[in-house]
Amino acid sequence: MVAPFPISTRSEKILPIDLPVVDLTAERSMVTKLIVKACEEYGFFNVINHGIPRDTIAEMEETAFDFFAKPMAQKKQLALYGCKNIGFNGDMGEVEYLLLSATPPSISHFKNISNMPSKFSSSVSAYTEGVRELACEILELMAEGLGVPDTWFFSRLIREVDSDSVLRFNHYPPIILNNKDCKDNHNHTKVIGFGEHSDPQILTILRSNDVGGLQISLQDGVWNPVAPDPSAFCVNVGDLLQVMTNGRFVSVRHRAMTNSHKSRMSVAYFGGPPLDACIVAPPVMVTPERPSLLFKPFTWAEYKKVTYSMRLGEHRIDLFRSN
């Protein structure tokens, strides 16, 4: 469950971490090795020289901030908007958000939404197209690095017209609390904006402004703050990719904290397959180190149903293990 109250540092360790950085313009064999290593050890990495124009990113962020600056009554008129209630089971957080289908047919309908910023449709469409291609490129590099003969094995699932990919804008307004509330190690009051979870889809491409907040947990009870890098995209492995790599890649749990001084906005592209897609590791992922499939095959529709039936922080992927 997402906890909309200050964190307690008495039972949690906070250790900053530097994520691996992958330059997509570097020599290809080195890029594939770095990506595979990062996915095995961290489940997260940053990509630079990603090819998405700065103007595309800046215009998208500008129109999104314009929307979140609107009066609450006006924002609530939009069915795509949510505030604090971030899950289907009453999960709560200090966040407001927009949740959009990230397929081209869906994006084309945004121009008909009267209370959206004037440039929203074109800017979000251009941005979504860019991050979708970036996600496909990264998934193909992953397949190549893993020795999967069909290098489109992963990316094909989000290239499909009926893919279930989504784009989510999370806006975390600054939260000012009383002095009696808990504080983090940097003496800045923090509350949980979006609680502990793993991403259920294949791959996430995350963009955030220059305000920190993302934390990942590589060990139980230890949270690692990740410094924001506006020049990079943060990429993380989703549950489905962990299954399709037979557990070689890890879908790491993470959360987002608010900032008491400045608004934070993140934009996440979640690459999801068609609902009827069968999620299973290719034969090459069965190795002497992993001599059998760790997860039984299932469809994305089946996994998505389980995801929405559980609380945010519950370990849903364990329900699909073979043993």
Rank of each mutant, 00 (worst) to 15 (best):
D150I: 03
R168G: 12
R159F: 12
N170A: 10
L141K: 05
E160R: 15
I107D: 05
F154N: 15
M116H: 06
S118D: 03
A135M: 02
V166K: 00
T128K: 08
V95S: 05
L98F: 08
E133I: 02
Y127Q: 02
L167P: 12
I175T: 12
S114L: 03
R159P: 12
C136Y: 00
L141V: 10
L98D: 09
H171N: 15
E140S: 12
G145P: 09
A126Y: 05
T151E: 09
T103M: 04
P105D: 00
S101N: 08
E133A: 14
E129H: 02
L146M: 12
I107Q: 12
A102G: 00
F120K: 00
P173T: 01
S122L: 08
I158V: 13
E137C: 13
P173F: 11
N112W: 02
K119D: 00
N115C: 04
N170C: 04
E140L: 13
I113L: 06
I113H: 05
E133D: 11
R159E: 15
E140D: 15
E160M: 14
S121C: 14
E160N: 15
L134Q: 07
S121N: 14
S125H: 05
L134S: 08
L99R: 02
V161L: 14
E96F: 11
P105H: 03
N115D: 10
T128I: 06
P174T: 15
I138W: 06
S125V: 06
D162S: 13
S165Y: 04
V124E: 04
E96W: 00
S165D: 02
I158G: 08
H171Y: 15
F153G: 05
Y172F: 14
S108H: 13
F154Y: 15
L141S: 09
S165K: 06
S122I: 00
R168H: 04
V95H: 01
L139N: 00
S118Y: 01
S101A: 11
R168K: 07
G145K: 06
R159G: 13
T103Y: 06
S165W: 03
P173Y: 01
Y97E: 00
F110A: 07
V95G: 01
E129T: 03
R159I: 14
F120S: 10
A102S: 07
V95W: 03
L139K: 05
K111H: 03
T128P: 01
G147T: 07
V131G: 00
L146V: 12
N112S: 08
E144F: 09
S106Q: 05
T103E: 07
I138F: 12
K119T: 11
R159Q: 15
S155Q: 11
M116L: 12
I138A: 04
T103Q: 01
F153E: 04
L98E: 07
E160T: 15
T151H: 07
Y97F: 02
L134N: 05
V124D: 01
L146N: 15
